[in-house]
Design a protein around this nucleic acid. Structure first.
Lengths: 336, 336
DNA sequence: ATGAAAGCGCTAACAC
DNA sequence: GTGTTAGCGCTTTCAT
């Protein structure tokens, strides 16, 4: 039969309430008692019943991870974040649920409300791009649901972020160091923070090198392979082709490499290409892709840790900054 | 304030128990009453409290999806399955949790036990390769936890499967039709069902074409890009090189294409390459990869539906077979 | 076909 | 520092 809190209490010769206190790391239990209760729990392999706990305590020990499955980033990226979040939740014996939501759908808020009413998560972790969706944030605050964000655009909340602008700058500086001057940039979906930062980093590096911005070299993409192909065709049709292309993510960079093949351009001999994210794909291409590595798994873990800190009453939480790593591979070489 | 079952009962002028009956689709409620109660629920936007429900009813309305995050398949594959499972769970107002587990770890069963004791899932969905891990299945049966499998090797249980052997046969027949005779196969991780079926299909097609098996043309891989590269190098070093390579998944096929580049072999002119799974990568390579498309998302949904059918007392469930689709792309062409 | 009473396993509020 | 009492919101069992 199931071991209940009451059984532990009897075994440790204390009241149920005391066992509850120990279980929840509350104060006002003497060290001796605490130890005795812990031993009893251990010996009996006691597992608190989550439903009883949440019913009585009015908290669910549940964290929901929200993501956009419409114009979402690469599935690898999300999978890694998810693993990180899960890891942190496990460590604190919280459970996690995942919720795909469509930001561009008009019943977004209704679905969010349903999630909250149906499952009562104690908090949520937000992943890009919904990290910056104002109506969502507003609703979460209205309903008093704490949240932590992965790579938010604004700095107000808690969670984790990476200096994407500095990373973009670093990758463009790498191209500049290889002697490239006509460097193009393929932009991501307009309102995503990722797109803005990477574009800003590109501009900053170009300006610092004394290169005036050539609007023809900045083309719009949409984070997909196909949009990379289209953007690259536009670039290759120019009178003065770029000698290097920095795409705002690896998928678009792959599209650029594909289009290069169509145009008979050899990468990296005729054209250097680089991306952003370091998806597994980046290593599998031939030549392998120069890109920026994000510690996605760790970012997921950190965001969840910040949220859990708040839920467990361990202070207000913060926005943690993580480092990036420039991965130089075969797709970039000296300018022709 | 929260609307409770009792409030609905009052509004519909019935007892709480009757509302409960309606909520759970039980018998012994007159149509008129049922309708009235439903209307009241709707009007008040009633949401049953999941914890109260599971505490009193001794069921969690929770489905756990188990996967191996050690030698797991591509993350895209799992992400799609996950989305499908989630879709089915949502439709029946079950919640879903995901659990990475390491099959090759000695505390596997302990972790499984912890999952069951801590979260009390009403059932679990198993994904390859843990679908076939005997100790796991045994423990689930011992603890009376119903499960449904995605692509199990043995036919006893419920879930969903695809005729992978027929698919492998089809892809090899495609190569044969292009005039290839020296067709190599890169095998996946030995004990995975996927590896066995795909190898069996290869053999079957070759035998049917009257080609004796050449052991040198069957090399071991491990489902990873790197293992595809290694396997291909082995093949290209042969006196008589193959003119086509069928790799047991897309990642390995990508490795084969990479190695072909190293050896100066043009795909598909000098060498045809095909894979299995139709990951997004397959379309992004250049040339794009001929492969087998699995309806992963739908498979996840179907597996979950079968499980939910059992949990909801809707009969015993079955092992549903789904069709595959041969995707012919640029990586395969007439034999040189 | 419907209802009354009891209780699932835990925690909140309040004693002491 | 510890215990007592009364629920949390639902389902069970057993009446009727």
């Amino acid at each position: 039969m199931r071991v209940r809190l009451e059984d532990v209490a009897r075994a440790a010769s204390v009241s149920p309430k005391t066992v509850s206190r120990v279980l929840n790391d509350e104060a006002n239990v003497s060290d001796a008692t605490r130890k005795r209760v812990r031993a009893a729990m251990e010996a009996m392999d006691y597992r608190p019943h989550p439903s009883a706990r949440s019913l009585a305590g009015n908290r669910s020990f549940l964290v929901a991870m929200l993501y956009d499955n419409n114009d979402n980033p690469a599935s690898t990226y999300l999978a890694e974040i998810q693993d990180g979040v899960l890891e942190a939740c496990d460590a604190h014996r919280y459970s996690m649920m995942v919720r795909p939501l469509r930001m561009r759908s008009d019943d977004f808020i209704r679905r969010l409300d349903a999630l909250i009413s149906d499952h009562h998560p104690d908090g949520v972790v937000l992943t890009p791009p919904i990290t910056d969706y104002a109506p969502l944030l507003k609703r979460l605050r209205e309903r008093d649901v704490p949240y932590a964000s992965v790579s938010p655009q604004s700095g107000g909340g808690i969670g984790v972020s990476m200096d994407e602008q500095a990373a973009a700058r670093a990758i463009v500086e790498h191209l500049l160091a290889l002697g490239h001057r006509r460097i193009a940039h393929v932009v991501g979906i307009a309102d995503h923070g990722a797109s803005r930062w990477r574009l800003a980093g590109y501009r900053e590096a170009m300006a610092a090198a004394g290169l005036p911005e050539d609007p023809a070299l900045v083309v719009q993409g949409a984070f997909t392979f196909g949009s990379g192909v289209t953007a690259a065709r536009e670039l290759f049709a120019l009178q003065q082709r770029p000698t290097a292309v920095f795409a705002a993510n690896d998928d678009m960079a792959t599209g650029v490499m594909w289009a290069a093949g169509e145009y008979g351009l050899k990468v990296p001999h005729d054209l250097s290409v680089c991306g952003f994210d370091d998806t597994p794909l980046a290593r599998q291409l031939w030549p392998a892709l120069t890109t920026i590595q994000q510690p996605s798994r760790e970012m997921g873990r950190i965001a969840a840790q910040q949220l859990l800190g708040v839920l467990r009453g361990r202070g207000p939480g913060e926005l943690v900054q993580v480092p990036f790593a420039l991965q130089i591979r075969g797709s970039t070489a000296r300018a022709p």
